[in-house]
């Protein structure tokens, strides 16, 4: 696995601001798979068999990750955890800052969330605002016994008091870097890529 390196100013200048530096793989397919396997085992360990756990993925990529985790756990335990999706669009706090967007799909497994241990699954944990919206969305669906959070990548820069219970990879980043999770289900490959926003879009 490659170590994380932040491009130097010289490298940025050399790459030119018009074309952003090409994105660099920080996790390849095998590493993504290993990270998910580890999270699956951790969930089983920490929830003592996950008897009442429900996996809810946040669309788009979190939903696929939740499905994969459910499959991994099934391989180990021989039993499929209830899993579904939770769209948080309508609960976002930045709705009015961006154009109205298409809704994702919410699919709560039979049995609902009341009294359950809900594990929220997302691809990247960044400001924490998506998870805040997810907690609100969840509250409107019922009253879970507890809520935990699993993410493939934690890139830091939290803006809310939120932390993940299960992390595939801690990835220290600069604000102006971008992290992109690619999954075979939609992107035809598994990878985590790191890139740099062009100066103009970096929001300085």
């Amino acid at each position: 696995m490659t170590d994380v390196t932040v491009p130097t100013a010289a490298e940025n200048a050399a790459s030119g601001l018009r074309a952003p530096a090409p994105m660099r793989a920080v996790l390849d397919a095998a590493a993504v798979q290993r990270a998910l396997t580890r999270i699956a085992h951790e969930i089983l360990e920490r929830t003592q068999g996950a008897d009442d756990a429900v996996l809810l993925g946040i669309p788009t990529r979190g939903a696929h990750l939740a499905a994969r985790l459910a499959r991994q756990i099934a391989e180990v335990e021989g039993r499929t955890l209830p899993h579904g999706t939770l769209d948080v669009t309508m609960y976002r706090d930045d709705l009015r800052l961006r154009p109205a967007r298409t809704l994702g799909h919410t699919e709560i497994p039979d049995g609902g969330v009341d009294g359950k241990l809900v594990v929220l699954v997302d691809d990247v944990l960044f400001s924490g605002r998506t998870i805040r919206a997810a907690l609100d969305a969840l509250a409107d669906l019922g009253r879970p016994r507890a809520v935990q959070l699993a993410v493939l990548v934690d890139r830091g820069h939290r803006e809310l008091p939120i932390r993940a219970d299960y992390v595939g990879k801690n990835l220290p980043t600069a604000q102006r870097e971008t992290v992109q999770v690619r999954l075979a289900e939609i992107d035809r490959e598994d990878a985590v890529l790191l890139g740099t926003k062009p100066e103009r879009e970096a929001g300085r």
């Binding site: 709705l95 154009p99 967007r101």
Partner: peptide, 11 residues
């Protein structure tokens, strides 16, 4: 209503 009012600009 959502698509007209929900975002910073209507969809």
């Amino acid at each position: 209503l959502y698509l007209l009012l929900g975002g910073s600009e209507p969809a």
